[in-house]
Each structure stands twice: as structure tokens, then as C-alpha cells.
Design a protein around this nucleic acid. Structure first.
Length: 453
RNA sequence: GCGGGAUUUGUAUAGUGGUAAUAUGCCAGCCUUCCAAGCUAGAGCCGCCGGUUCGAUUCCGGCAUCCCGCACCA
């Protein structure tokens, strides 16, 4: 048995592995990169797809009252007006360098303008209202939303935004989905998709980025279900992370948002924190958004989104419990959790102990030698397995068998199938398991059946 | 956004005012019938833009990116 070393994976180790093995590359690397943007390589995209598939299965396929959605990244800007994303971020602000307080520049200047130059002039030598020191920064706009223009003309009326979260378009589609699925409350809408935020400083590899992918589910409930459903979705999150993804419980902990910490929409918020290389940080949030979102959309759009309960003959605006997790963060958590170094024959073996369902490559077909007769049979085994399964399989005949095992270990391939000279006689192959390194002789005919994914 | 550090081949590092090396990885051949073996051969690197200089990967400036601390994270 391999001997597991006690190691704490550093961010450097993770970044280096991710690059070396083709999980994550810097976006536009040959041009010096772009802060906050990353590309997923051949194994990265497999892992990401598997994560999304696992989540979609647990969330949409296994919950009869939850439906999928894939909405546009660019929406009518009124949506972001209603959600509060535009208002909170179109005001000029100043920071105090001494006490860190942030103030509305136009309020401090006593003038209703958004002309930065004018404000800068007026605020020159103004003291901070909080600490009294004259250490205010120049006024600036802090809009985290990425801006674009719709149509060929770039003017005020054509301004639009890349969505800063996927939730918004779930709310605006609430009635469409309810109607077309003939749903009664409670029911949910799930979506996986990209969102964009102009983070001030992207950090920690793929943890804080400007282009991110979210897996979100918004659950529509009556006001009296808040407590019960909030608990239900917290439990779902914990079970998914520990049971489905297989993250170590030691690496997970709950964090409850205090009143100052909560987003503008949330009445209660619990995050699951994961023990990333840079420390325990937010991975998955469960928030009670109350009726905040639909009420705002009712007000802004003028459309009645209230719900009439046939059973109780009551009408109300649905409340919402949100379950939201980042795909990139999940990937980073999976890699961190799975990373192991072991001592084998005096050498270090790097092995990713990823759950079989998430592994980028499920099976590697490895002829013991490059001899034509072995290559031929190995190709046949490969083709046969590819045709009878629907998972990712790799073929590799370069270098020694030991080296190929190590390569597969490093990307977390759970099964290596070796074809040797005896296979030519007995139509059987050796299946080597990643974690235990144990080997089992299996008939080629029974291979697909033997490998349980 | 502020302060600090870093940037040399796929990765990890050494080094130099006269354009570079080690390990590993990769690749080819031989050998090898199960855990990074060996031998031989090969490809591959000074982040970008300026300045100083006869000459810059090296010195200087700017930028970019990454990492660390703070702030930010609605």
C-alpha cells in the first residue's frame, strides 16, 4: 500500500499542477494574460463538465418540482435597475484612506452631479465625516457590472450589462416557468451559466475572478415556508458536498452572515466555507431572499407576479430561497481536497483522489509495450470500450508503464487498463485501481461491466 | 485601489553587461513483459514597451501578470 504523506497543498502547487497537466491556463497568456480571466484546458473542461452534470442531476433530475433554465447573459437593463445593481453602483464615491469609510461624493459636496472633475474640486481638503481627517480619495464610480452596447450605435440608450449574477433572469422568468410547467408553489428554477463582475482585485487563482460560472437554484415558496425550506436547502448543500462530491468534512464549515455582512436582498444567509489553500473561504451560499426580488420586479415592470393559492384561496408574492455555488470554486475545492502525495518505492507519487464521477478521464488504456501485436489488441479494447460506454477514455503507449500510471494518477484517472502479452492468449487485461494501486485480471468481454462509473 | 515580493524552456530552479544552465517533463530509437529503470539522440526559455550602452535576459523607467498583506466582495 502506498504511504500517504501529510501535506498541505499550497496555491503554488495547485497552480503549477493545473498548468502542467492542462486543467487551467491563464486567459490570453501569450499576450500577458488578463487579470481575473482563466481558460480551462482539456482536463479542466472535463472536470468542470462533470461538476455541472453532477449538480444538474442532483438538483433538476432528482427534484421533480425543480426545472432548468438557460437565459441570456445580456438582459434588459431595467432588470438590473429592479434588482438594485444599477442604483447601488452608479453613484460617485470617495473612500477615506484613514478610517476606510466610504461616502457618496455628491452628498459630501452638497451638489447633485456626477461630474467627477467638478466633485473633485469641491471635495478638495474636505474632511472625512467619520474620522475628520482630510484623507479622502478622488471621487470614483464603482460599478461592478461590465458594460456593453446593444446595436451598432454607442450611446446612452443602447447601454446594456453582462449579468452580474444568474439569479436575475430566473426571477423574470418565474411566471413563464410556473405557467408552462403548471407548477404550484413550492417549486424551483435552476440555472448554470456565466456571470461577470468587475472585481476590484481578482485574487487567489480561480477563486475570485471577473468571469465566473454559477450554479444557482431559486426556490419559490409561500411566506410560511421560509424556515423549513431554508433548512432544507442548507442540508441539500451539505449533503451534496460531502456525499456527492466527496469533500472531507474537516475541510468544510458553516458560516452565518451577520447583519452587516448580508447582501441587500438577504434576510438570512449561511455559507459553506471550504478550506482552500489560502484558508477557509466561501464556496456555497444559501440565502433567504424573502419577497425582495419579485416585489421589485412587480414594481419596476408593472407586471403582477403574485401567486394565488387555490387551496387556501390566498394571494401573495412568493418568497425565495436561493442556493448558489461557483463552478470554478467548486473545481478548486475538488482539486485541493483530492491532492495527495504518497511515498512509493522511495519516489513521490502525486495522485488526485477525485470521485469517480468527477474524474476527467475514467479509464486509460495502456499496452505494456509498443509492440505492434499489443498495440493492435489495445486499440481494439479501446474502441470496444468507447463504443459500449459514454465516458472519457484515453489511450497511451508512450514511455514505460510506470510512468504512464503516474501520469494518470496526477490527473485522477480511477482505472488503468493494461494489455500485456498474456492478453493475446487469454483475452484478459489487468485493471489497476488508482488509490490502492491494486490490480485485477479481467476478461476483455467483461471490462465495461467491471468498471463501475 | 494601496503597500511588498516575483517573472529565465511545459514545470521547478541556477546564472550572466558579450543572448544561457540544471533537474524533471516532453519527443525519437534501442532495451524493457506492471508502478516516473537504463543507454543514445532531439526539440524547447530570459513577460511586454521604452531608456542607458558599441552591445541589455542582466542596469534604469513604465506597463502587464502572478503571489503576499490591507481594502473591496453589492
Amino acid at each position: 500500500m502506498p504511504h500517504t504523506k501529510k501535506i498541505t497543498v499550497t496555491l503554488e502547487t495547485l497552480v503549477s499542477l493545473a498548468k502542467r497537466r492542462g486543467f487551467v491556463f491563464q486567459a490570453s497568456e501569450i499576450y500577458g494574460g488578463l487579470a481575473g480571466f482563466w481558460d480551462y484546458g482539456p482536463y479542466g473542461v472535463e472536470l468542470v463538465n462533470n461538476i455541472k452534470q453532477l449538480w444538474w442531476r442532483a438538483m433538476v433530475y432528482e427534484q421533480p418540482e425543480i426545472y432548468g433554465l438557460d437565459s441570456a447573459i445580456v438582459q434588459n437593463p431595467k432588470l438590473w435597475k429592479a434588482s438594485g445593481h444599477i442604483d447601488s453602483f452608479t453613484d460617485p464615491l470617495v473612500d477615506c484612506k484613514s478610517c476606510g469609510a466610504r461616502h457618496r461624493a455628491d452628498h459630501l459636496a452638497g451638489l447633485d452631479t456626477s461630474d467627477l472633475k467638478e466633485l473633485a474640486l469641491l471635495l478638495k481638503d474636505k474632511p472625512c465625516p467619520k474620522c475628520g481627517k482630510k484623507t479622502l480619495t478622488e471621487p470614483r464610480f464603482y460599478n461592478m457590472m461590465m458594460k456593453t452596447w446593444v446595436g451598432p450605435v454607442e450611446d446612452e440608450s443602447s447601454v446594456a450589462y453582462l449579468r452580474p449574477e444568474t439569479a436575475g433572469s430566473i426571477f423574470t422568468n418565474y411566471d413563464n416557468v410556473r405557467e408552462t410547467t403548471r407548477s404550484k408553489i413550492p417549486f424551483g428554477i435552476a440555472q448554470i451559466g456565466k456571470a461577470f463582475r468587475n472585481e476590484i482585485s481578482p485574487r487567489d487563482f480561480i477563486f475570485r475572478v471577473r468571469e465566473l460560472e454559477q450554479m444557482e437554484m431559486q426556490y419559490f415558496i409561500s411566506p410560511d415556508m421560509q424556515k423549513q425550506q431554508y433548512e432544507r436547502w442548507r442540508e441539500f448543500c451539505w449533503d451534496f458536498l460531502t456525499e456527492r462530491v466527496g469533500l472531507a468534512k474537516d475541510n468544510l464549515k458553516w458560516h452565518e452572515h451577520g447583519p452587516d455582512e448580508r447582501a441587500h436582498y438577504a434576510a438570512a444567509a449561511h455559507d459553506v466555507y471550504f478550506n482552500f489553500p489560502q484558508g477557509f473561504k466561501e464556496l456555497w451560499g444559501t440565502h433567504n431572499r424573502t419577497d425582495f426580488d419579485l416585489k421589485n420586479h412587480i414594481r419596476e415592470s408593472g407586471k403582477d407576479l403574485s401567486y394565488f393559492d387555490e387551496a387556501t384561496k390566498e394571494r401573495y408574492v412568493p418568497n425565495i430561497i436561493e442556493s448558489s455555488v461557483g463552478v470554478g470554486r467548486m473545481m478548486m475545492a475538488v482539486l485541493t481536497d483530492a491532492y495527495n502525495e504518497e511515498e512509493v518505492n522511495g519516489e513521490t507519487r502525486v495522485v488526485l483522489k477525485i470521485d469517480v464521477k468527477l474524474a476527467p478521464v475514467k479509464v486509460a488504456i495502456l499496452p505494456l509495450s509498443k509492440k505492434p501485436e499489443l498495440s493492435k489488441l489495445s486499440r481494439e479494447v479501446y474502441t470496444k470500450l468507447v463504443q459500449s460506454t459514454n465516458y472519457n477514455i484515453e489511450y497511451d503507449e508512450t514511455q514505460s508503464i510506470g510512468k504512464r500510471y503516474r501520469r494518470q494518477d496526477e490527473i485522477g484517472t480511477p482505472y488503468c487498463v493494461t494489455i500485456d502479452f498474456e492478453s493475446l492468449e487469454d483475452n484478459a487485461v489487468t485493471v489497476r485501481e488508482r488509490d490502492s494501486m491494486k490490480q485485477q485480471r479481467v476478461k476483455i468481454d467483461k471490462l465495461a461491466e467491471y468498471i463501475k462509473i
